[in-house]
């Protein structure tokens, strides 16, 4: 029997016994079982090499898992062949560390590349995207605050702007789920918060679930609904952000003096942590 998932909500993700061993012998993931309900924004934390990136890439099979199964709603992604996998990938938008934009293409081409799974090769070759896609791309650029940069080359933008293009590209897919890999790894603390807030907001607006790899524990506590801690490819913590006590962090990362861990350290951060951002916050974030 297939699992009972409410048919009205889309974008529920289920990982069962997911395991990845690389050909080099590295055991990146060991028997990870995880369920992400629709609309939940989940933060994945853990030391470098704990398997966070591998986990995310096993979901859309940029990395082939060695064992275990991945379900998106009722679709078993791990059972799909080339064509079916490509159609399934359209439902999962991915946002990358260091943006992974195609640097020599324009901002607009990058956003429209989110539609590649929907248009034919010839249409995409001559950049003749359907008017609806183009309209939608302009709306997304407006949403992330880059309307006037549409025709600039991606490598002409700043780090924060590039990641906004990355977000717009992922949203252009009209996904049900976002896979987010270290979105703020090369951004300054302020820009990092703006990007995280933007991701939270678009998830809330569209009812998207998301898995977000984060290096920065404070950032994870501030923006995530639920935290999963990974250590050496195993889930060692799964709970609310408030549950990240020094003992838990030691369990995830190993022995260290964790200092004061309350997320609300400064006035600005206290503001942000207080709850839903107001209009001014959004305006600033853009």
């Amino acid at each position: 029997m297939p699992p009972t998932v409410s048919p009205t909500t889309a974008g529920s993700l289920r990982l069962v016994g997911l395991t990845k061993r690389y050909r080099t012998g590295d055991q990146a993931l060991s028997d990870v079982t995880l369920e992400v309900p629709p609309g939940q924004v989940l933060g994945l934390i853990g030391p470098s090499g704990a398997g966070k990136s591998t986990l995310i890439r096993c979901i859309n099979r940029l990395v082939e898992p060695s064992a275990g199964r991945v379900f998106l709603d009722e679709t078993e992604i791990t059972a799909l062949h080339a064509g079916g996998l490509r159609r399934a990938r359209r439902r999962m938008g991915m946002i990358f560390q260091e943006y992974a934009l195609v640097e020599r293409l324009t901002v607009m081409e990058n956003v429209l590349s989110g539609r590649l799974g929907y248009v034919s090769f010839w249409r995409s070759l001559f950049r003749r995207f359907p008017p609806r896609d183009i309209e939608n791309a302009f709306r997304l650029l407006e949403r992330v605050g880059l309307t006037e940069h549409a025709d600039k080359r991606a490598d002409a933008l700043s780090g924060g702007q590039r990641q906004r293009v990355g977000i717009a590209r992922a949203l252009a897919q009209e996904p049900e789920l976002l896979l987010v890999d270290e979105p703020t790894a090369s951004l300054d603390p302020k820009t990092s918060r703006q990007i995280m807030r933007l991701i939270r907001e678009v998830c809330a607006e569209r009812g998207l679930a998301a898995i977000v790899n984060i290096h920065d524990v404070a950032l994870a506590q501030q923006f995530m609904m639920r935290i999963v801690g990974l250590r050496a490819g195993r889930v060692v913590y799964d709970g609310p952000p408030e549950g990240l006590t020094p003992a838990v962090l030691t369990e995830i990362y190993g022995e260290e003096d964790w200092g004061p861990l309350k997320p609300a350290q400064t006035d600005e951060e206290a503001d942000d942590a207080a709850g839903i951002p107001d209009d001014q916050d959004i305006a600033r974030a853009l």
């Binding site: 859309n60 991915m94 990358f96 293409l105 590649l116 070759l125 897919q173």
Partner: peptide, 30 residues
């Protein structure tokens, strides 16, 4: 070429010819 750009195009559900056109060709054109 930078493999991450290629990976990003693949992740959108693009077919092999589209990956070539969007992920690889712009990088080797110069």
């Amino acid at each position: 070429i930078d493999t991450r750009q290629v990976e990003a195009v693949r992740a959108t559900g693009a077919g092999p010819a589209q990956v070539l056109d969007y992920g690889i060709v712009p990088q080797i054109l110069p």
